[in-house]
Amino acid sequence: MEADIRRLRFELFTALWGDDWRGLEMGVAYLLQREGCGLVQRAGSSGDGGVDVAAFTPGALLVAVQCKAYKSPVKPNAIQAFHYATTNGWESTLSYRRWRHPRPQLRIMVITGGFGPAARGVAGNEGIHLVDLDALANWEHYGMRLPAVLGLEDW
């Protein structure tokens, strides 16, 4: 039953945005704009430095997002790479190189394939918020605001 619900949520999202990394990034960028965020970087590329989408929240926090259109759970090393890109490696990211934005105050990984316990542990230790397919469905289809999806009071 759980697998059927997860598959249906994935099908709903992919019906709107496609089932590849580009569609996921564009979908997340759209959802951030719907939240009232001002985009500064939309859709990653090989030179993005590990940040696919960057935006300023209505409260002026810089949000960095890494999107992975995976069918299986993400490994902890992907979380560690994103952590590095948004901390010590920030000066290598497109958001810094092009616009000299400071390091992000909010870091989010959106993964269609989910997260295993080890990846969740790394993310928790590093302060990275995780959005899996269930959270993505709440944000996209059910109109839940991202701060609520992430367990934040506001931003």
Score class of each variant (00 low, 15 high):
Leu133Pro: 00
His83Leu: 12
Gln80Ala: 15
Asn77Phe: 11
Cys67Ala: 10
His101Pro: 00
Thr93Arg: 10
Leu106His: 02
Glu126Phe: 15
Asn88Thr: 03
Val131Arg: 03
His129Cys: 05
Thr86Pro: 12
Pro73Ala: 13
Thr86Ala: 10
Asn138Met: 12
Ala55Ile: 12
Gly116Glu: 11
Leu106Arg: 09
Asp132Lys: 05
Arg100Phe: 07
Ile111Trp: 02
Tyr96Phe: 15
Gln105Glu: 14
Thr112Met: 14
Cys67Pro: 04
Ser72Pro: 00
Val51Ser: 08
Ile128Pro: 14
Val122Met: 12
Ile79Glu: 14
Val63Pro: 00
Leu136Lys: 00
Ala54Asp: 12
Ser95Ile: 02
Pro73Trp: 02
Ser95Trp: 02
Met109Asp: 04
Trp139Ser: 07
Ala118Leu: 09
Arg103Pro: 12
Ala137Gly: 02
Val53Tyr: 03
Val74Ala: 15
Asp132Met: 04
Ile108Leu: 13
Thr86Asp: 07
Gly124Glu: 12
Phe115Gly: 03
Val122Gly: 03
Leu62Arg: 11
Trp90Thr: 04
Met109Ile: 15
Ile128Gly: 12
Ala118Lys: 14
Phe82Asp: 11
Ala119Ser: 13
His101Asn: 04
Ala135Cys: 07
Leu106Tyr: 04
Pro73His: 03
Thr87Tyr: 07
Pro76Asp: 12
Ile111Glu: 09
Val63Phe: 00
